[in-house]
Amino acid sequence: MLELRLVQGSLLKKVLEAIKELVTDANFDCSATGFSLQAMDSSHVALVALLLRSEGFEHYRCDRNLSMGMNLNNVSKMLRCAGNDDIITLKADDGSDTVTFMFESPNQDKIADFEMKLMDIDSEHLGIPEAEYHAIVKMPSAEFARICKDLSSIGDTVVISVTKEGVKFSTRGDIGNANIVCRQNTTVDKPEEATIIEMQEPVSLTFALRYMNSFTKATPLSNTVTISLSSELPVVVEYKVADMGYIRFYLAPKIED
């Protein structure tokens, strides 16, 4: 028996909008720790890892570990029927091949349940090692989205370079090239407007902008984004999901032939 009640249902709506472009089908895993998902895009270049900790739910019942295969486009269709202020409850019985999404309006005057068929998905679970990153950049998520969007009108790839001067996003294309430098800036009115750069050593990596732009679909989840870079690892682009968890996007770099 599974029953997860999320008072801030809009978080789940935003989570689905954040990942459905990148991943078509995925297993949602339920355990005592929380509600999670790990999936790669169809070309195995990017990986998304979602965790919503059990403590973040108003009610969290998961009698045994459960993996539920879902088509994310269909989940998104179901969740779009929930109001932004609705409380969302996920329910599934043991051995059932369906999951039910229950939507309650804040004053309880409308209660809807949508039942969705589950699917069998063969997915590989990857071990993601704890790692030391050469540079970690925390910046406003809207700023990062703007940079990725702007650069993708010039080129297909972005070079992200972190030095003591700041973080530089560069691209080049047929019509020309572009460089955007963001310097550390902590003298702002609100902490979420700060750009904070922690650098152990300089790092410079090249990534496909198409994926970066896809990751920025998570922007509505959080005012800030954290970009962790290491020359030996995929970049991690992380958006917090309120105080209950995160979405982490991993993207393998492009390297010189």
Partner: peptide, 14 residues
């Protein structure tokens, strides 16, 4: 000429 690396070049199956 850049090669797009894959996630599986870095992370192993559990």
């Amino acid at each position: 000429p850049c090669i797009q690396k894959k996630i599986l070049d870095y992370f192993c199956r559990d």
